[in-house]
């Protein structure tokens, strides 16, 4: 690859030729008409075989992916509000993880078809061989649905806790934050804090 601009200097005559070929020189140059025609023929050949505009596959999904990733991270967003909900906090902590997961899941579109719901359905790459992902934009719901099949079932014995968490005051991203019961602000439910490598970790208290 050339990096030395000196090697790209053109002879002044070739500069004139270029300006003539690209219609920037109003003067007649009969001696260059053949070259101009050849350049135009080359341009036409390229334009007839290369698209100047082509929508990406699953174009609506393409846009929705971008919007989903930028929503929590406004470029000139005002400061965090004084009281923020759990989901806001969750998004702030987990945005990088969610982004990575989205990139993994939507690594490569391989085919698409009409879905039963009337939208377009696309298959996507998943990092686990026996897990298949289909992406379906459901027009009625106005949402993109990701269907994962082949995942290991969650054991019935697994206990899933749900808390009615109170809103808590805003803290700086990555700082330790405490969550209290909505009906009793004296009951500390769990603490969200950063691990040594900066990742989020929840420590249950109640």
């Amino acid at each position: 690859m050339k990096t030395n601009p000196e090697s790209e200097n053109l002879d002044p005559k070739d500069v004139e030729l270029m300006r003539f070929m690209d219609g920037l020189d109003p003067h007649d140059h009969p001696e260059w008409l053949e070259e101009k025609a050849a350049a135009q023929q080359l341009g036409q050949l390229l334009r007839s075989h290369l698209p100047s505009h082509a929508e990406p596959p699953s174009a609506e999904f393409f846009t929705s992916q971008i919007m989903a990733q930028i929503a929590p991270t406004g470029p000139a967003r005002a400061g965090v509000s004084a009281r923020s909900g759990f989901m806001d906090i969750f998004r702030r902590w987990c945005a990088p993880l969610a982004t990575a997961a989205a990139v993994l899941v939507v690594g490569g579109m391989v085919m698409k078809r009409q879905s039963p719901g009337g939208g377009r359905e696309a298959f996507a790459y998943t990092p686990i061989a026996n897990v298949k992902a289909t992406l379906d934009f459901n027009k009625d719901a106005g949402a993109t649905v990701i269907n994962l099949t082949g995942l290991t079932a969650i054991p019935d014995a697994r206990e899933i806790k749900a808390f009615n968490v109170a809103s808590t005051g805003a803290v700086a991203p990555g700082a330790t934050q405490r969550f209290y019961a909505a009906n009793d602000p004296d009951i500390l439910l769990f603490v969200l804090h950063a691990t040594d490598d900066g990742g989020p970790q929840i420590r249950e208290v109640h």
Binding site: L50, P51, S52, H53, A54, E55, P56, A59, F62, T63, I66, M67, I70, A71, G74, P75, A76, R77, A78
Partner: peptide, 25 residues
Amino acid sequence: CQAGDSRAFEPLVNRYRGKIYAMIV
């Protein structure tokens, strides 16, 4: 967009995605 309105980015994406995708291809 610069004022933080992420929704304003969507029409820009819709408008230019075809040009950008074709150029990359």
